Amino acid sequence: MSIITLLLLAFAMSTDAFAAAVGKGASLKNPRISEALRMGLIFGTVEAITPLIGWLIGRSASPYVDLWDHWIALILLVGLGSHMIYEGLKPSQLGDEKLIKPSMFKVLFTAVGTSIDAMTVGVSLAFINVNIWIASALIGTATCIMVTIGIMLGQALGAVLGTRAEIFGGTTLIGVGGWIFFSHI
């Protein structure tokens, strides 16, 4: 997998966290850069760990599915991308309440929720020739940056960009799944 494809994958994996961060930023009263960076680091760390877990799961199963690996990657990534598009098309659930500071538990819970898809991608990456350490580092770094930006821009962009980012990320995942599939047949 080329570095360009890994960068696209990292960006796609960070879009759901970015959409959540835009929503969080829209609910915060005057978010500070230190608070946005703290949330970005939490999201990025979780998002970097989950593909490693998925990769370990996938590697343990890979000897049994070598003939089907490109099909598995296609199905997982297209399914995940479709779900992201579906979530991006749903009406926003954002309320009008303004929070001063979100609890660490809520931030961590949201980070885990948005990173489950990265575990699925990790499973897919176990079936192709990719350096999982570089992929996980890129996914974590992209997520940290995107969440930090999303928190800071949340108030201005919450209603406009949040769902479109998730739709774009889903479309990118479907494209990566198609690329993996067609490069292996």
Rank of each mutant, 00 (worst) to 15 (best):
I180R: 05
G25S: 11
N30W: 07
T120Y: 00
F109R: 10
R38E: 09
I145M: 06
A26L: 12
A36W: 03
T172W: 04
R59T: 15
S14E: 03
I185C: 10
I116C: 08
L9G: 02
P31S: 15
F43T: 00
R38P: 03
A20N: 07
I134H: 07
G25C: 06
I180P: 04
A142I: 04
S82T: 13
A10Q: 04
G113Q: 04
S183C: 09
T110C: 05
A20T: 10
S60H: 14
D16W: 00
N129Y: 10
D96A: 12
L80R: 03
F43K: 00
P91M: 10
G162K: 00
L37R: 04
A26Y: 08
I49E: 02
G95P: 12
V46F: 04
S103F: 15
L28N: 05
A118T: 11
F105M: 12
S82Y: 03
R164G: 02
F168T: 12
M84S: 05
V123H: 03
S124D: 10
S92C: 09
I139D: 02
L52W: 08
R38Y: 10
D16V: 05
G23Q: 08
I4V: 15
G25V: 09
F43S: 01
I42T: 13
I132V: 13
S34R: 13
I149H: 05
Q93N: 10
A165W: 00
I72F: 14
L52T: 08
D96P: 07
G158S: 12
K101W: 02
T15D: 01
